Amino acid sequence: MRSSGTLRYSPELRPGSHRRRDGGSTRWWLILDGDPELGRYLRHLHWIAQRRLRSLQAPLWGTHVSVIRGELPPHPGHWGDGEGERVDFTFDPLGRETNGYVWFPVRCAAVLDLRERLGLPREPQPPLHLTVGNR
């Protein structure tokens, strides 16, 4: 399936704050904001698949792809490249669940190229995925 998202560097958790509950920071994070309606639709399908017994809440950042998760890039001069740009990606229509988070595998050469430009390994760990909800 195809969709698109908007690049957002150092996303805030609350207005004016990058501080996480565990004391960490979201300053060296890059996410691809996904379509909120797509997330709402996929959460609804999950609810139906769970026989309407187990619903999901939207992630704190909404539907998104985590591209960089707290990795300090060796080439920080490229930090912010493409901020606010729309990027197309494809995702596997079969969702998965890990530790209460529901996600879909993603393929997106554009964000992998961006990781390389920043001096990071092309493939992140965990691999690219669209997060749509959690329990």
Score class of each variant (00 low, 15 high):
residue 54 R to C: 09
residue 1 M to N: 08
residue 73 P to A: 05
residue 46 H to P: 07
residue 45 L to Y: 04
residue 71 E to Y: 00
residue 126 P to T: 06
residue 99 N to R: 15
residue 108 C to N: 00
residue 134 N to S: 11
residue 118 L to V: 00
residue 48 I to V: 14
residue 60 L to C: 07
residue 95 G to W: 11
residue 89 F to A: 03
residue 43 R to A: 04
residue 46 H to R: 12
residue 55 S to D: 13
residue 49 A to M: 06
residue 58 A to I: 02
residue 24 G to S: 13
residue 30 L to E: 13
residue 38 L to P: 06
residue 101 Y to E: 10
residue 13 L to E: 11
residue 70 G to M: 04
residue 109 A to D: 15
residue 85 E to Y: 11
residue 2 R to Y: 03
residue 63 T to N: 12
residue 54 R to M: 11
residue 29 W to G: 05
residue 52 R to P: 02
residue 88 D to G: 12
residue 45 L to R: 03
residue 131 T to F: 13
residue 26 T to C: 09
residue 130 L to Q: 12
residue 97 E to W: 06
residue 94 L to W: 11
residue 102 V to Y: 14
residue 71 E to D: 08
residue 7 L to K: 00
residue 76 P to S: 06
residue 63 T to Q: 08
residue 120 L to P: 12
residue 52 R to T: 00
residue 84 G to P: 14
residue 98 T to H: 15
residue 60 L to D: 15
residue 131 T to P: 10
residue 56 L to K: 14
residue 61 W to R: 03
residue 17 S to G: 08
residue 65 V to Y: 01
residue 124 P to E: 01
residue 94 L to F: 12
residue 107 R to I: 00
residue 115 R to F: 02
residue 100 G to D: 05
residue 86 R to E: 11
residue 112 L to T: 09
residue 114 L to M: 13
residue 47 W to M: 08
residue 90 T to Q: 15
residue 56 L to M: 11
residue 82 G to E: 12
residue 125 Q to F: 14
residue 80 G to L: 09
residue 60 L to A: 13
residue 33 D to N: 04
residue 58 A to W: 10
residue 25 S to M: 10
residue 104 F to E: 05
residue 17 S to Q: 13
residue 92 D to G: 02
residue 60 L to Y: 12
residue 66 S to K: 02
residue 124 P to D: 01
residue 8 R to M: 05
residue 73 P to M: 04
residue 130 L to C: 10
residue 66 S to V: 14
residue 88 D to K: 00
residue 101 Y to R: 14
residue 16 G to R: 08
residue 23 G to M: 04
residue 1 M to R: 05
residue 18 H to S: 13
residue 98 T to Q: 15
residue 93 P to L: 05
residue 69 R to I: 07
residue 11 P to A: 11
residue 7 L to Y: 03
residue 93 P to C: 03
residue 83 E to K: 02
residue 113 D to N: 00
residue 77 G to F: 07
residue 133 G to N: 10
residue 126 P to I: 12
residue 89 F to D: 13
residue 93 P to A: 03
residue 121 P to E: 13
residue 36 P to C: 04
residue 78 H to Q: 08
residue 110 A to I: 00
residue 26 T to I: 02
residue 57 Q to M: 08
residue 83 E to M: 08
residue 101 Y to Q: 08
residue 75 H to M: 01
residue 77 G to H: 01
residue 119 G to T: 05
residue 133 G to D: 11
residue 90 T to R: 07
residue 62 G to A: 04
residue 1 M to F: 12
residue 86 R to W: 08
residue 79 W to M: 05
residue 126 P to K: 12
